[in-house]
């Protein structure tokens, strides 16, 4: 086979994919989104009905996210993480995503430090809430709004 023919074979395979590079290009359908009330209900379930107190939780998020597919967040909870006083769980809730729950992190004194970092999807501009449940059952929370930009030719 000549070199030219070999080059051609490679190109033909590529041709199949150009312009149809997969489902990643499809926009999200406008399905029903959760409401802040539904997020509130989810939080009530976590806390056993109690309203989380402000404080002890630091939520780090960008004010503006370039793309809702990947928004990095960190949650840090002020806790000695001893047997007597530690963070049992951190819940991250995005109020107006199709499903408000993002992730739950289960901690213990084995962690030494109550801090996690992850990336999440945000369907639109909305408030993100981080709720920490302590060993004694008390709950604390922090929240922040994130503006999600939609690019003109996101692709």
């Amino acid at each position: 086979m000549s070199d030219r023919a070999l080059g051609r074979a490679a190109l033909t395979r590529r041709q199949i994919l150009i312009g149809t590079a997969g489902i990643g290009l499809m926009a999200l359908p406008r399905w029903a989104q959760a409401t802040p009330a539904e997020a509130q209900a989810a939080i009530a379930k976590i806390t056993g009905g109690a309203t989380p107190a402000a404080g002890r939780v630091t939520l780090r998020l960008p004010q503006i996210a370039e793309n809702g597919n990947s928004v990095q967040f960190s949650v840090a909870v002020d806790s000695p993480m001893t047997e007597a006083d530690y963070v049992k769980a951190i819940h991250v809730i995005a109020e107006e995503n199709p499903f408000p729950e993002v992730a739950t992190f289960y901690l213990s004194p084995a962690n030494g430090k109550a801090e996690v970092t992850m990336r999440m999807r945000l369907a639109k501009t909305q408030t993100v809430r981080a709720v920490a449940v302590m060993a004694d059952g008390k709950a604390f929370e922090a929240q922040q709004e994130v503006k999600v930009t939609i690019g003109g030719c996101g692709g």
Partner: peptide, 24 residues
């Protein structure tokens, strides 16, 4: 077990996660 996490559909593709553990 020293750390556990439940993930839902809002976790980004190619998930990244960092956390802390006390070295014992």
């Amino acid at each position: 077990e020293v750390f556990r996490s439940d993930w839902y559909t809002a976790v980004s593709a190619n998930p990244y996660l960092s956390f802390f553990v006390k070295a014992t």
